[in-house]
Each structure stands twice: as structure tokens, then as C-alpha cells.
Design a protein around this nucleic acid. Sequence first.
DNA 1: TAGTGGTCTAGACCACATA
DNA 2: ATGTGGTCTAGACCACTAT
Lengths: 252, 252
Amino acid sequence: MSVGAKPRYRQLKELIIGRISTGELQPRDRVPSENELVDATGVSRMTANRALRELDSEGYVERVAGVGTFVADFKAASHVLEVRNIADEIALRDHEYSATVLDGAGAPIDPEASAALKVKPGDSLHRVRIVHRENGIPIQLEDRYVLPDFAPDFLKQDFDEITPSAYLSSVSPLQEAEHVVRAAMPDTQIKRNLEMADGEPCLVVTRRTWAHGRPVSFARLYHPGSRFELSGHYAPPGTKVFGKRPTSGVGM
Amino acid sequence: MSVGAKPRYRQLKELIIGRISTGELQPRDRVPSENELVDATGVSRMTANRALRELDSEGYVERVAGVGTFVADFKAASHVLEVRNIADEIALRDHEYSATVLDGAGAPIDPEASAALKVKPGDSLHRVRIVHRENGIPIQLEDRYVLPDFAPDFLKQDFDEITPSAYLSSVSPLQEAEHVVRAAMPDTQIKRNLEMADGEPCLVVTRRTWAHGRPVSFARLYHPGSRFELSGHYAPPGTKVFGKRPTSGVGM
DNA sequence: TAGTGGTCTAGACCACATA
DNA sequence: ATGTGGTCTAGACCACTAT
């Protein structure tokens, strides 16, 4: 290939993506087969194969052995929302982050947390409650439980300096996470700590994270409805969500 | 390869993934090079290349030409939440779906909708309001605007039979989507239509979708806070989010 | 200079679909 | 029987990085 030229498999991909985006190729339409691409463009079959295979894994087309390659139904995709780390979120906006650790001593352990972390209801868990602020304004109340044997020194951390999420990530890399997002009214304590108006609802994110193959942390993240939102952008296949992202860290 | 055996590039991938998941290979550790894999396993270089290349695109490793292949930092990933089509969501649960079209005639066009669809504030837009029910219980109020020239027959559809999302998808495949999730209190009309309790907040999803390179539809989806939640599961690289999903359709 | 990944080729054999 | 995708090989040339 000449200097500056794109690799041939890429050219093939772009050719086909172009036909799809102009509507020349509609969902479920048949895409040229490997051999047809070989004949039409002079590339080797392996090159045509790579182009079509990547288009498949990226979701543009579906391939059926023995049958052919077809433009994918975009319905096969899923919308996504990102749930970022609060400190990253604030840093992204170039705002000032601060935090206050609440006195959580003696607070009873939420049975849901015990269940989520698969420990007996009575078993002790590390717990911390923190108000996260953006430019001094409370934006999240984090109520977090951690498996003590996963992070024995968890409670010794200075959470003004390092977020629980960041500390847990430093203990061990994240393996898996589960989220649930709800709208709910805050109780009086949460409302006060987040300096919320009367009648203002919370956006509540519940998060459970895994490391070493077991759930190790459970957190409830309360956000003032008037000051927080989750947003997401979906662009069809080709835009990767996992891997190779220059964006913020994952929350733990 | 013998019958029933996995392809060799897959075996290689699983070998390396295994070393990563056991911790034998830590983030930023060097992964065997293509030539090393060739020597160690007897495969051809193209097969080793495919294994490593796919591990790269799936986010397990990072490759640097001239340098080597390294275990990826998992922090480069992002948490995601799925926003599904309401009818699919209900179908997934094997529940009964039903819908009621509200009389929306004469309702003023929301300036936010005009702005989102990039039309002048006075310009007319197709609009429909629908209550979606799961087993007869209201679970979503959809307030949707559609660019008339994108889907001229939009208002002629029987939305008891086909959801706006499904109809729009049939007009043209989805290109792009934007979501925002908020918690907010419903106004009295929404509260009544969703049969919500006093003081119960809404989970509000705002969605904008693109086709043919321009925004074509804007929707606000109101959900009773006590009866609806968004959930998401994140598993590190290897679990694909886009493409090849047997799950529900994308919302339009 | 030696090693790395990036690409490409021209064959090959296979299982599977369709006709 | 033909065509499709799925896989694999044994070479090759290149640009780049590190030493």
C-alpha cells in the first residue's frame, strides 16, 4: 500500500459503512460476500474476511456461516448511560471537589447491604458516609459498606484526600459492577446533609462491585434531584464503550 | 483442528485471559509477543496476531507497535446503564403490555423540544402522549415529539399496536441517541395518569434520537419512582455491549 | 540491529446452507 | 453441487521502537 493510504481492510469497511449510512444498504440487506469483495476489489480473501469480521463484531453486520453477511438491525444494540465516579465527574467539569465524612458510628447495618455482600445480617461491615461537594455544594451522599477482609484498612483512610472508590480500586482492580438507579424521596437526615429543598426528590444510585470473584462493596449514592443528572450518548456500532477509553476512571 | 475443539486463536485468548484473571498477569504487565506465542504454541503468526488483536479490541490488552502488548488498565472502562424500550422491558419480564394514547391535541409545544430538534419555537411538531402499562399498571408516560418531515404519517399510527419507538425505527434505523436521567416531582396531570401516590417522585428519562444525521425525535419518559428502576451490569472487557446482543431493542 | 506490531497474500480445509 | 463463512498457514514487507 502507498504511504499515507489506509489499510485495505479499513477501506473495505468504510466502503460498506458508507453504503449503509447512505441507505443504499438497508438493514437485513445482503452485503457482498468475501469472494465478491475479492473479485471486486482485488484484495485477498483474508483481507475481505477481516473487514467483514470486524464489521460483525462492531455490530454493523451479522454473518451467518453458509448463508451470507447482512446489514444488522440496529435494534440489536442497547442504550447506555455512564455512571461515573463523582470526583471524576466534578474534575471533568473543572470544578472544585470537596468532601465531608459524616459520623456514622453506631449506625445499624442495612440488611440490604448484608444481603448484597452475601454476609450474615449480623456480621460487621466497614461503613462510611460521605458528602461529596462540587464548588462547595453538596451533590452526593455516599453510604458505603465494604467487606472488612477485602480492605482491612478501609476505615483508616482519609476520605478527604482519597475517595472510597479510588481507595478500593487501589486495593484491587474492579472486576464487575452492578447498578440500579431510582428516584426516591430522601429521609430527613439525607435531605439535611444534601441541603435539599422541601419536596425535592433524590436520584439514588445503588452500586455493587466485585473483586476476586465476589461482591466486596455496596454503596448507595444519593443525589439532589435538582442538581444532578445522568447522561449518556449512544452512537451506533463503531464507537466503543469498553476498552481504549481516555475518559474517567471506573467507580468502585 | 479436531472436532469439537475450539479454534486456536480462541484458545490463545482464553489462555491469556486466564492469566489475567488469576492475577498472574497484572495490569501493565507485558503479554507474550506474537512471535513468542508462535514459538510457544506452534500456531502461525497470523493466528497469534488475531488472538492478541481481538484481546486488544475487547479491552483486555493494549498493543503498541514496536514495543509490545500489555495488560490493560481496567480503569479505562466506564460503567453503563441500559435504557430499554419500555415494551421490550415488559416483554422481557413476561408481563402483559398495554398502552393508552392520551388526548394531546392543542397542548403547547415544549420549547425544549423545539430546541432539541433544532426547529424554530413556533414550528409544528408531531406529538403524542402515551401511558404504557405493565399488567395494567401505569409504568411510563411518554411525551414525544417527532419531526414531521421525518415521519409524516406518525400521527396516523395506532399506538395501541405499535410503540412510537418501534414505528420510528421502522421508518429509518436509529443512528444516534442521547439520554438524560433525572429525578423530579410530577405535575398533577402526570401524577394522575401514572396513578402515583402523593409525594412520590418520578424517574424522568429524556431521550433524543438521530437519523439521517439530524435529531428527529425528542421524548420525555416519566416513570413512577416506586415502580421503576434502571439497572446495569458491568463486566470488564470481553462482555460486549454493542453488537451481537440477543436482548431487547433500542429505543427511538 | 533486532524485536514489535500492522498488514497482506494465495493458497488450503472445514462445516454448514441452499438449491 | 455450489456458495458461504470460519479457520489456519507460511511466508512477506512495512513502520516503528529500543538498544
